[in-house]
């Protein structure tokens, strides 16, 4: 079990949230609690960088869906960056790979 570590930074294209560790039943709540503190303006991208994500279960998927809704409610868009292979597999099973925008890394995602 790994703790969940999150950090945010602002870029020209919008906020970037970096997630490390486990996004699971135990700590997905932390992720969801953090969302309201992140402001997404119309036309901006909320980039969630999963490059250091170790594990994601269905609660983690729910948290990502919440991030999607959060970005949309601000008039923006959620972009997932650097999604690890096992999480990508789950996203593909549940069809979210068709709905969410996924970029190989956050530089591409932020358009830098």
């Amino acid at each position: 079990m790994n703790a969940l570590k999150m950090s945010t930074r602002d870029t020209a294209s919008g906020p970037v949230l970096e997630v490390a560790g486990d996004l699971d039943y135990l700590n997905a709540g932390q992720f969801r609690d953090l969302l309201p503190t992140i402001t997404v303006r119309p036309g901006q991208r909320l980039v969630v960088d999963l490059g250091a994500l170790d594990f994601c279960d269905s609660s983690g998927i729910t948290a990502l869906i919440a991030a999607h809704h959060h970005a949309q409610s601000g008039g923006g868009q959620l972009v997932l960056a650097a999604v690890p292979a096992n999480t990508l597999r789950i996203l593909s099973i549940v069809g979210l790979d068709q709905v969410l925008t996924i970029h190989p890394d956050s530089e591409v995602a932020t358009g830098a």
């Binding site: 998927i61 869906i65 593909s92 549940v94 069809g95 979210l96 068709q98 709905v99």
Partner: peptide
């Protein structure tokens, strides 16, 4: 059955 989406997430789902 690829591409089928989680049920209940979006107002319209494939």
């Amino acid at each position: 059955t690829p591409g089928g989406l989680l049920v209940g997430v979006l107002p319209a789902a494939p």
